[in-house]
Design a protein around this nucleic acid. Structure first.
Length: 275
DNA sequence: ATGGCGTCCGAGGGACGA
């Protein structure tokens, strides 16, 4: 079983690219962020045709998340992490014997804007919402809009104190981990330099100037089933790609215990010898 | 660098993203 998080930066604009990717990788669970449309506009049919159950929690123009699964989903919850948030940023469901929570954490805007305290408040409420789930088999994934440490920034000096990298954001991320969750990528690859987002501007993908902001947080109850995690940089390099890469957590199947990956590993990044 | 790019809404340029 595998679970992908993918900020697609408009599911309607990106539909052809996303379907192409789904046909290649065939994720069991696909967590989309920034679908940027209301539920009535979500392109459900092509995913239904591919065998996915589709649950979306959208809004007009901005934000919006969707949870797609080839396994049955139950107990679908929208409007996370609190009921009545005016922005559509969280959806969760039980699938394959665990909770999957799909988040689009606020960007935070300028530090002086009202968006920044909204982000911090959102993260504080997220922690409270996660607390009763943290002892169960749980994956919390999505676009966290937080680079947890300097090692997750292509230029830590440049980013120090900037939104996505402030101490206040990082401490709230750590507070979620303190519930008993692991940053799966970092636990599996303690010293790897790997990004999941690269700015469209200035060929930052070409020069690998990015941040690691898309994460899977895994509870201790689920950790024994974790096999691997992969970042699909190859798809990020295609024309008309999202500015985020898809990140996939590979889990051992609960029944049978056979450790096979149902998704082929993505091609390795082509490291340029000449810059 | 109030820069760079991309998407949305709507019909021009502003909001927003990270």
């Amino acid at each position: 079983m595998n679970i992908t998080t993918y900020n697609v930066n408009s599911v309607r604009k990106r539909l052809e690219r996303v379907l192409e990717w789904v046909d290649e990788r065939k994720p069991d669970v696909l967590c989309l962020q920034e679908i940027k449309c209301v539920d009535e506009e979500f392109p459900r049919q092509p995913f239904l045709d591919r065998g996915y159950q589709v649950e979306s929690f959208g809004q007009k123009t901005y934000n919006g998340v969707a949870l797609l699964s080839r396994l049955p989903m139950t107990e679908v919850q929208r409007d996370l992490p609190w009921s009545g948030d005016s922005q559509s940023r969280g959806i969760a469901a039980q699938v394959g014997g665990l909770w999957v929570v799909n988040l689009y954490v606020p960007n935070g805007g300028e530090l002086s804007s009202e968006k920044y305290p909204y982000k911090l408040e959102w993260l504080t409420k997220l922690e409270a919402w996660l607390r009763p789930l943290a002892g169960q088999p749980l994956v919390v994934c999505g676009d966290f809009n937080i680079a947890p440490a300097d090692a997750d920034c292509y230029d830590a000096e440049k980013w120090r104190g900037q939104v996505l990298c402030t101490d206040a954001e990082r401490s709230r991320f750590q507070a979620c981990l303190a519930l008993g969750l692991s940053d799966a990528y970092r636990r599996l690859r303690p010293s790897q330099r790997q990004f999941t987002w690269w700015d469209y501007r200035g060929n930052q993908f070409g020069s690998n100037q990015g941040l690691r902001i898309d994460h899977h947080l895994v509870s201790e109850a689920l950790w024994p089933r974790v096999l691997d995690i992969s970042v699909d940089e190859e798809a990020r390099g295609r024309t008309e790609a999202s500015d985020h890469a898809a990140v996939t957590l590979h889990l051992q199947d609960f029944v049978g215990g056979e450790s096979k990956l149902s998704m082929p590993p993505p091609a390795a990044r082509q490291v340029g010898l000449f810059g």
